[in-house]
């Protein structure tokens, strides 16, 4: 499929040239029908140089063969059936019109040569279109800051959570935006980011931060109780008080142990639920327990 930009550029490249017809009908080079045939060839239409009648009939043939659709489009073929009366025979005239942009004709205003904007649209009597052969225009990545901003954002979202290096940006300027997004979306790190996203969603939903702070508080209380019990032990004199202090220490140790076990169990369960998160959870465990 050709894009509109490609069709424009192709037709402009033909202006001032004689459209060439291949063998065995090289003598048709430069004819108005040949001007349409070279376009058909460019568009990839089957048998572009087949004989489809003189100008007045060629539009009907293209419709009959399903190669064009009735009515004007963006890429319109215009036929006038009454022009081109030569030696008492009317052959008609055929040309190309890009809707609202330009028109191109061969052997019309200038013998055998392709000219641009020399044939008024309203001289047409039949309008058919070749839009079925036109694909979507590419959107090319520009070099301006808004393009950098947007693709830097895509980079964070699809490749890794880091700024897009300018050197990489410079390499994608001028490329088809869709193709670049497609390749980034297929990047191995993009899949990793999805997994991290899932962990993040679970952490947010289950309020891991609050759970961690709650368990940290329990641990701190247990540690404080232990310290207090140790102080009491130092100050105690009687046998009875010593026994009481020992019991307090044992209780505090048990509470601390319990809190730590709960925290470890919670983090371990989450780590086992998703191995991808282990690195992150190990970091959390280390952070909470001081690397123990």
């Amino acid at each position: 499929m050709r894009t509109r930009a490609e069709v424009r550029a192709f037709l402009d490249s033909q202006v001032g040239k004689i459209p060439q017809h291949p063998a065995p009908y090289q003598d048709l080079s430069g004819q108005c029908v040949t001007g349409v045939k070279v376009l058909l060839d460019f568009l990839g239409v089957p048998n572009p140089y087949a004989a489809r009648g003189n100008a007045k009939d060629a539009g009907d043939t293209l419709l009959r063969q399903g190669l064009a659709k009735p009515g004007p489009g963006w890429l319109t073929i215009v036929v006038n059936r009454t022009m081109g009366n030569i030696g008492g025979v009317t052959y008609g005239h055929i040309w190309i019109d890009l809707q609202g942009e330009a028109n191109y004709e061969s052997n019309g205003a200038r013998a055998l040569y392709m000219t641009k904007n020399t044939r008024p649209y309203n001289q047409g009597q039949q309008y058919i279109n070749l839009d079925q052969w036109i694909g979507e225009d590419e959107v090319k990545i520009g070099s301006s800051e808004n393009w950098y901003w947007r693709f830097n954002r895509f980079h964070h979202q699809l490749v890794r959570n880091a700024d897009l290096p300018r050197s990489v940006f410079n390499q994608i300027v001028g490329l088809d935006a869709w193709k670049v997004l497609e390749s980034w979306s297929d990047h191995p790190e993009a899949n990793q980011l999805i997994k991290w996203q899932e962990i993040g969603e679970r952490a947010d939903k289950d309020k891991w931060d609050q759970q961690i702070y709650g368990l940290q508080d329990d641990l701190n209380i247990a540690n404080a109780n232990l310290l207090k019990a140790q102080q009491q032990l130092g100050e105690s004199v009687s046998k009875e008080e010593l026994a009481k202090a020992n019991q307090a220490i044992a209780d505090a140790q048990a509470a601390a142990k319990k809190a730590r076990e709960e925290l470890d169990a919670k983090l371990k369960a989450d780590a086992e639920a998703d191995k991808v998160g282990q690195g992150f959870l190990r970091w959390l465990i280390g952070k909470i327990t001081g690397g123990k």
Binding site: L28, N47, N54, N107, G108, A109
Partner: peptide, 30 residues
């Protein structure tokens, strides 16, 4: 140099250079 301003018909020079198409062969296509 020919006049390539808009004309109501193809130019006289174009008429002089005209070559008709061979018979349509579309019945054998598709």
């Amino acid at each position: 140099m020919e006049d390539i301003t808009r004309q109501p018909d193809i130019s006289p020079a174009a008429k002089k250079a005209f070559v008709p198409e061979p018979p349509a062969e579309d019945e054998n296509e598709n």
